[in-house]
């Protein structure tokens, strides 16, 4: 079997497994997994910029929130139904990521981290500033009646699970497709040695711009779907914490691997879930586990798997 076939089988297999799990999982884990799939989609988006292109952004919460607020505000104030509201969230994500990319990509390295961090912080403050519309920190709830998409009630756990799975499947397969195409391979080359890529005749700025827009748009899609599925839109999703989360998930799961973001999100979610059941100092347990993992699997769980077993893993 060729590497492309094998990876299609593996990633398709994961989606099939997640589909099947819906019928057997107890309620508690069922709900968790729906949330994990949406957050993992966010991480998939983050990974395209960080893992594949080698650009460390500290401002992805801006994109997640752009999608979430683009969706939520149009429902709340313009009376949109879910489908056009999701489109509004996506469009907001595209515009915001293109705008930030045009500014931030003039820098690199640490300056890029700081610029993305600052703009995300500015976005967060903007949400607070327009509290009249956004309800600031407190946020707002999207009523059950407003969460019916084509007659399907997205507040129902089963529907919600499937909606999360559809989003995740689209993001995962988009990523897989992207990294196997010349565009994605050029991104990896930019990560490895940008100057050389330029001297092979590629417009590296255009490639990084493309990567950042795809990454931001996927993140925005996740944000929009998250708000719609869980019925809440709040400023905490725009805070710096939500910029750090995808970085952690991707590092743990394996930067620059298609599966890594999901594995990392799943692992971290249950790590915190498990340790908070034992002690109130759960962040301590989580922290120690993270340190151990970075010591013994510096390339993340999936990265380690690739290094030791499956060299063909995309």
């Amino acid at each position: 079997m060729s590497a492309a076939r094998r990876s299609l089988a593996l990633h398709g297999g994961l989606i099939a497994l997640l589909f099947a799990l819906q019928f057997v999982l107890p309620d508690y884990h069922h709900g968790n997994l729906a949330r994990i799939m949406v957050l993992a989609s966010y991480a998939v988006g983050y990974n395209i910029l960080f893992g594949y292109t080698g650009l460390l952004s500290l401002g992805h919460a801006l994109f997640f929130a752009a999608g979430m607020y683009g969706m939520g505000l149009t429902i709340q104030h313009l009376g949109f139904t879910p489908a056009p509201a999701l489109v509004a969230g996506l469009v907001t994500g595209i515009v915001v990521s293109a705008g930030l990319a045009l500014l931030a990509l003039r820098t690199s390295g640490v300056a890029f981290m700081i610029v993305t961090l600052m703009f995300a912080q500015a976005g967060y403050l903007t949400i607070l500033y327009f509290g009249e519309y956004t309800r600031g920190d407190e946020g707002f709830v999207i009523q059950q009646a407003e969460r019916v998409l084509w007659g399907i009630d997205l507040s129902d756990p089963t529907n919600r699970y499937f909606a999360a799975l559809i989003l995740f499947a689209i993001c995962l397969m988009t990523c897989l497709h992207l990294v196997q195409r010349p565009f994605g391979k050029t991104l990896v080359a930019v990560r490895e040695n940008e100057e050389r890529v330029r001297m092979l005749g590629y417009d590296t700025f255009a490639h990084k711009l493309g990567a950042m827009i795809v990454s931001g748009t996927i993140s925005a899609a996740a944000g929009a779907v998250y708000g719609l599925l869980f019925g809440y839109v709040g400023a905490s999703f725009a805070s710096v914490q939500y910029s750090i989360f995808p970085l952690l998930w991707v590092l743990l799961g394996g930067a620059g691997t298609v599966l890594g973001p999901f594995i990392g999100t799943l692992f971290m979610f249950y790590l915190i879930d498990f340790s908070s059941g034992i002690t109130t100092a759960y962040m301590l347990i989580a922290g120690v586990a993270l340190v151990v993992l970075t010591l013994f699997a510096p390339q993340g769980l999936t990265g380690e798997l690739r290094r030791r077993l499956w060299r063909w893993l995309p």
């Binding site: 010349p182 391979k185 050029t186 080359a189 040695n193 050389r196 092979l200 590629y202």
Partner: peptide, 21 residues
């Protein structure tokens, strides 16, 4: 200035892919 972590094949393919597929 090669791409150290990529196979020789991909190094040369990057050069070729700019004009061919």
């Amino acid at each position: 200035s090669v791409f150290a972590r990529l196979p020789a094949r991909e190094n040369v393919a990057l050069a070729a892919r700019r004009r061919l597929r």
